[in-house]
Simulated assay, not measured.
Amino acid sequence: MPNLDEVRKEYMREYRKQNRERIRQKQREWRENNPDKVKEIYERFWMRKAKELQHNT
């Protein structure tokens, strides 16, 4: 019997495959409506990335 997590993963994989354009449109709309949050997320990502690169050298 499949694990519940495995079943959920498979369901979500199929859902995303069938609703790809709808999901992308919602993401696009969110980014357009929340430019300040997008900027914060972008900056936080690159600050973390820079710290990782410093630790790796």
Rank of each mutant, 00 (worst) to 15 (best):
2 P>M: 08
43 E>N: 09
27 Q>P: 00
25 Q>L: 12
42 Y>L: 05
10 E>C: 01
29 E>K: 09
41 I>C: 03
51 K>S: 11
18 Q>N: 14
44 R>E: 13
21 E>Q: 13
31 R>L: 02
50 A>V: 04
9 K>L: 13
54 Q>S: 02
33 N>D: 09
47 M>F: 06
35 P>T: 07
33 N>R: 15
45 F>I: 08
50 A>Q: 11
34 N>T: 03
7 V>R: 06
50 A>E: 14
51 K>G: 06
46 W>D: 05
24 R>Y: 04
5 D>A: 12
57 T>S: 12
43 E>Y: 07
25 Q>G: 06
27 Q>M: 12
3 N>I: 07
19 N>M: 03
33 N>W: 04
48 R>L: 12
57 T>G: 12
2 P>C: 01
36 D>I: 06
23 I>S: 02
6 E>W: 01
54 Q>P: 01
24 R>L: 15
49 K>Y: 14
12 M>E: 04
29 E>T: 07
55 H>P: 00
3 N>F: 10
15 Y>Q: 04
46 W>K: 03
47 M>T: 14
28 R>F: 05
53 L>E: 11
43 E>L: 13
48 R>F: 07
11 Y>H: 06
51 K>P: 02
23 I>T: 03
22 R>C: 00
25 Q>C: 00
52 E>P: 00
2 P>Q: 11
32 E>H: 01
36 D>E: 15
32 E>T: 00
24 R>A: 12
50 A>W: 05
35 P>V: 12
48 R>Q: 13
34 N>A: 03
3 N>D: 15
10 E>V: 01
25 Q>E: 15
2 P>E: 15
14 E>W: 02
5 D>M: 10
11 Y>L: 08
37 K>W: 04
12 M>D: 02
